[in-house]
């Protein structure tokens, strides 16, 4: 029982991230707007579709079209149709917000119950006919209600798949950790060839490959929902597939020896070599080329707008939880391998 605490901690953290990560709702957001093209000087009526919103019983419901930080226009009339639909009427000013002939507008809907909902750059504004009776002017957004409930952020495209960050990213993190521990056992095995070192190196590497496969699968599912395809031959996907191949080669190598001691030594050498080659594969190369994956090819990684503080309460425990679980699994596997080795010795005598 004395050495159980970290295993229980790992299980508890994973349970916590599973329950919290799956049940906490997203913040209200805007899913769509119709129409998506308007002209200056006209009176435009929009149908705004919300997600997780509560338009009907919202007090202080306002809508804005925002051109930049100081030029916005408030809706003259906002009529909720249902909890997730509202019709907003705008009287657009005669002048364009700047010298361009085309300008993207961001839709902002605000109420006491929903807080600030934003749909960035969805409406295209073009130069229209000047209406002399129109006195509408660009102004800055005033007095927005803020919502402070504990919710995950709403992001267009990501929507509910944002929860995958609690599983996909920690799986890769745990994989790197487990491979690293495996390499340490391989180094120990080279310095002092013992069965327990070899068994641990194999066990940790096996669990690492398992986590890598799971990381690739969760990534593919995420890619299906955000990039459009399970496998889009993105550099990050290719490189992770190759990284798994490097480790599969490790198992092929182990299997090609009859002599146990020799197998342990040579595969330890290859394991260290393979781990070092993982660094250019997963870290350097994807940064050099174009990639859809966050953190690569000039895309922002974790942090900034994408990692809301509410998510950190689950992401960081998930890192620790999955790593502890992976170490636990590897431990069981290593103990099994050591026992198997002892049994073999007994039978051979």
């Amino acid at each position: 029982m004395k050495n159980m605490w970290w295993k229980l901690l790992g299980a508890a953290l994973i349970l916590y991230t599973l329950i919290g990560g799956m049940t906490i709702p997203l913040k209200p957001g805007l899913a769509d707007i119709i129409p998506t093209a308007i002209k200056t000087g006209e009176k435009a009526e929009f149908l705004v579709i919300g997600y997780n919103t509560n338009f009907e019983q919202s007090e202080g419901l306002t809508a804005w079209l925002k051109a930049d930080s100081i030029r916005s226009i408030e809706a003259i009339k906002v009529v909720p149709q249902s909890a997730t639909e509202l019709v907003a009427t705008f009287l657009l000013p005669n002048d364009m917000p700047n010298a361009n002939s085309f300008h993207p507008l961001t839709v902002v809907v605000n109420s006491k119950a929903d807080g600030i909902c934003v749909l960035p750059g969805q409406v295209a504004l073009q130069k229209g006919v000047i209406d002399t009776l129109n006195t509408s002017q660009w102004s800055s957004i005033k007095s927005l209600h803020r919502k402070t409930d504990f919710n995950f952020p709403y992001r267009n495209i990501l929507v509910e798949t944002i929860r995958n960050i609690f599983y996909h990213v920690p799986l890769w993190f745990a994989m790197a950790m487990v491979f690293f521990i495996g390499v340490i056992y391989s180094i120990l095995n080279l310095r002092n060839p013992l069965v327990k070192y070899d068994a641990n190196a194999v066990a940790f590497t096996e669990i690492g490959v398992l986590l890598g496969v799971l990381g690739t699968i969760t990534g593919a599912i995420w890619a299906k929902n955000t990039w459009g395809q399970y496998w889009s031959w993105d550099i990050k996907q290719n490189m992770s597939a190759i990284a798994i191949m490097v480790y599969l080669a490790y198992f092929v190598l182990r299997g090609s020896f009859d002599d146990r001691e020799k197998s342990a030594r040579i595969s330890a050498v290859y394991n260290i070599f393979a781990f070092a080659s993982l660094i250019p594969l997963l870290v350097i190369i994807p940064r050099m080329t174009e990639s859809l994956h966050p953190g690569n090819g000039g895309n922002p990684g974790m942090g900034g707008e994408d990692l809301d503080h509410t998510m950190k309460y689950f992401l960081y425990p998930a890192f620790i939880g999955w790593t502890l679980l992976a170490v636990w699994m590897s431990n069981i596997r290593a103990r099994f391998l050591i026992l198997k080795d002892k049994m073999m010795l007994k039978f051979n005598q």
Partner: peptide
């Protein structure tokens, strides 16, 4: 590494191709 086992050239390809990709 591959020369230590009896599998020879086939094992060399398996071991080296993924590593040479970067």
């Amino acid at each position: 590494i591959a020369s230590k086992s009896n599998s020879g050239t086939g094992l060399l390809a398996i071991l080296s191709f993924p590593v040479v990709i970067p």
